[in-house]
Design a protein around this nucleic acid. Structure first.
Lengths: 339, 339
DNA sequence: TTGTATGCGTTATCAG
DNA sequence: CTGATAACGCATACAA
């Protein structure tokens, strides 16, 4: 693959490289005819400006790194679509990496991106990420970073988050309004995760507001997968602790639990009403269709991308901010008791 | 963000840049002590080599472009994981673009990648892509390209495909072995798509082999989404054309159709047995769980990545090849009649 | 209006 | 063993 350069064009036309350069960046004055001639022959010769050379001069890579926990999770691929959309328009390229829910890999990814001289990093932490010291240092060094979704609680950084508390509250309240009295919350795992704790906080406050009894057994640390949901449901059945409503940390857990309860003869939503979180593709086709909180995935991506660009282009003149986005409760049959 | 360069180190240590450079590329001889001193102070100063400068010299971007129809489809995100894995190890970066099933966007993406001076392109065509002339030209110009999944039938290029024919044949034969006599195939749309036509060819041949009647009504051009599946099922019910087995172009179509038939009181698999294709996350948790052909998504990615690297590194000395990968039929309750 | 020279950060080729 | 210098492709300040 031989690439045509401005030198080739200059030689061909017996002009200097600077003239050719000028023709492309309609800056300094250049005779209209020469310009047109150059542009024309450039096109004919199949010239494409070498972005690498430009980047070297501008001392910027126009690359932005993205670090997500796992790409199989549609949430993150959807966010990345939003990110791409904005970045592409602005001439940036996105380098996508995934940390497979491993802090070690996450750190490695970030360091690799640094070595790639990205202009900024967009990231969502793994579930096990506890130590955010390195990211703090990066911020202090002046590297633009935007966190989203799974964000470091203690760091003063730019963040885009979802109002987990509010929507967990609404979701729980919805179950209560459907007549549920004994609602169990299937929670994530680590208490350090903002998301898990915010959602369970919303659950608790809704229970309190409506003066429903709330004991330790009603919040169960489950995990995040379909199998986690299944496992917990089996345990609940074995212990004969059957609630009349379940608010799950996410759709996968809800689906897993629902499946098990169904095969054991429980009627949904009559015996147990279900609400999930972070609407998945499966929710609407479950039987019964699963009520879930939908997050504005694409908007999150768009917002994140705008923020990182803003931060890059106003390097010395920006203050960390946290943007909180809203969602929607998609009410479906799994929680509708038609009281 | 000020970046330390070898110049900074040279100045700091009162040596020349070439000495510093030598210290990093343990090539030419350099006094052990100076080398160690340089390496040490470089680390202390937080030096990171500028990959852009290196790329300029090497006249290579070490970027590889990926063009997929849509990233929401987990198939493609899974493939991309495999691709990433291999490329990252070899020091390449992946630029991911998606064409949203639009030929126009696809072409735009490819051209953008060209302008980014990618060293090669990995792509899967959109469903509407018909004209592959431009890609032919690119290949002739010597740009390494590897196609996968949705590949241009007529182009002599490197391709990684799945044995759609074979597994469609097996899937259909499985239904026949379960006692189905009147099997309908829910096909994609465009006849020009290798995948759709290969799968329906497999279906037809299996029917022929087992001497089952096969008329035009048994192959229905459906589409690719859950709603397409629903729509067709409703039509079949309305026309009272109820088969005893359905082999769908993909899981989404199977799921859509299955849902409708179920709500109309049909028993799965007793009344109608179902087989999907390209195992989705939903398949195992459907009720009944959906039999499907699983594709080795990650392996496809790995294979594709290896091929593009091979092509890049042996630019003048490679011949286009087509690699066909195998899958597996995950038999589940949706097709098991326990005869 | 155009050409010359310099520099972006690095490597490579020569001299020394 | 080390230093000076040219080159990668392009942009730009300055000179003509």
């Amino acid at each position: 693959m031989y690439h045509i350069t401005i030198k080739d064009i200059a030689r061909q036309l017996n002009v200097s490289v600077s003239t050719v350069s000028r023709a492309f960046n309609n800056k300094s004055d250049i005779k209209k005819e020469t310009k047109e001639l150059i542009l024309h022959t450039a096109k004919k010769m199949g010239y494409k400006p070498n972005p690498i050379a430009k980047k070297l001069i501008e001392r910027r890579s126009y690359n932005i790194g993205l670090v997500v926990p796992e790409f199989v999770n549609p949430f993150f691929s959807q966010v990345s679509i939003g990110v791409q959309e904005v970045l592409a328009k602005k001439g940036y390229q996105l380098l996508i990496t995934q940390s497979n829910e491993s802090y070690e890999t996450e750190l490695l990814n970030v360091k690799n991106l640094e070595n790639s001289m990205v202009d900024g990093i967009i990231m969502s932490l793994t579930r096990e990420t506890d130590n955010t010291l390195y990211y703090k240092e990066l911020i202090q060094q002046g590297l633009p970073i935007v966190f989203f979704n799974r964000v470091p609680e203690k760091l003063n950084a730019t963040k885009v988050i979802f109002n987990d508390y509010k929507w967990a509250f609404f979701a729980t309240e919805h179950l209560i309004q459907q007549g549920c009295k004994n609602i169990v919350h299937l929670k994530g795992i680590s208490a350090s995760q903002t998301i898990s704790s915010e959602r369970s906080r919303g659950y608790k406050d809704a229970m309190k507001k409506h003066k429903l009894s709330l004991n330790q057994n009603q919040i169960i640390s489950t995990g995040f997968t379909i199998n986690d949901g299944k496992r917990v449901a089996e345990l609940m059945i074995k212990n004969n602790q059957i609630p009349d409503g379940i608010f799950a940390i996410n759709d996968d857990v809800a689906i897993g639990a629902m499946t098990v309860f169904k095969t054991h003869g429980y009627k949904i939503p009559k015996d147990i009403a279900f609400v999930g979180f972070t609407e998945s593709k499966i929710a609407p086709i479950m039987e019964p269709p699963l009520t879930s909180v939908i997050q504005p995935t694409c908007e999150i991506g768009i917002e994140v991308a705008k923020l990182i660009i803003h931060q890059i282009e106003n390097e010395n003149n920006y203050t960390p901010q946290t943007i909180t986005l809203n969602g929607q409760l998609n009410i479906r049959a799994s929680s509708l008791r038609n009281i």
